[in-house]
Amino acid sequence: MDLGLAGSAALVTGGNRGIGRATATALAREGARVVLLGRDTATLAAAAAEIGAAGHVAADTTDDAAVVAAVDEAARLLGGLDVLVNCAAPRATRAAAPGLAGLDDADFLRNVDTKALGYLRVARAAAPYLRRQGGAIVNISGMNARSTGNIAGSVRNIAVVALSKNLADELGPAGISVSCVHPGLTVTERTDGDPEYAAVASTNALGRPITAAEVADVVTFLASPRGRAANGAVITVDGGRPGPVWA
């Protein structure tokens, strides 16, 4: 299937590692021109070179001025923007975080500021470019949005669901589709070859770990003209969690 991404301009935040890097790779393979956004210029440069990206820009997504400058520079490098994938966030913790009594206020606020508000900052800066001819925003959330046991993890991810639907309603009339993807435990370059992680990640209904490349394939489809009818959708990419029925 031709996804219609050839020549399109895509910005991927968190594109120097994990699902963000896998998504940037998948978009580039479909012919998109990609710019990576992150904080670490060394790993950004290395990832951009390996992927064949059009460039990279540095910004901490908790800094609005830095985000605006980085998005403007990405749009300059690409000649506009058609696709935004938001993936820059603190790493999810595998172990259950402390409950109410052990809640770390600073950590909670850092998670929300970086992931939820950070996504909004980037989307706000990118929206004027996307409005010119329509496009897509895909926000990477996570299955902690649908489970308890980690207050910061649940709140930051369910916030991404809420902001995605708000943006879908607001930007849809301008031809901009906004969707949200929930990965589960995902094998990335950081966890590849870790048998303990693989065993836990295999407890889905498929009975095997899901890779970052598989998540990236779904994200790439949603970002493409072929997938934009899924405006406002929340898609799980975790191999299927046994038991719950999601209506």
Rank of each mutant, 00 (worst) to 15 (best):
V178L: 12
M1L: 11
R131C: 08
G99H: 09
G134F: 07
V178C: 11
V181N: 04
N166K: 09
G153A: 10
D192L: 00
R91T: 06
A89C: 09
Y129T: 07
E189P: 02
V161S: 11
A152K: 13
P128T: 14
A213D: 12
T188G: 07
G135I: 09
R190E: 14
D2H: 13
V181W: 13
G52Q: 02
I210C: 07
G232N: 05
G153W: 10
R39A: 14
A198D: 13
I140G: 02
I19Y: 05
L130R: 13
E50R: 14
L37T: 01
S202P: 05
A168R: 00
T62S: 04
V187H: 02
A223V: 00
A123G: 08
W246G: 01
G243W: 10
T62R: 15
R110Y: 03
L37K: 07
V12M: 02
Q133C: 09
A32M: 06
V122N: 13
R132C: 08
V112W: 13
V160M: 11
P209G: 02
R190Y: 03
N157C: 09
A59M: 04
S224I: 06
A54D: 08
A106C: 01
G80M: 03
G240C: 14
H182G: 04
A97W: 02
A159C: 09
T220Y: 03
D107V: 15
A230E: 00
A46P: 03
L163K: 03
V237M: 05
N150D: 15
Y119M: 06
V68D: 14
D107Y: 15
E214K: 02
R39P: 09
E170I: 00
A6D: 07
V155T: 14
A26Y: 01
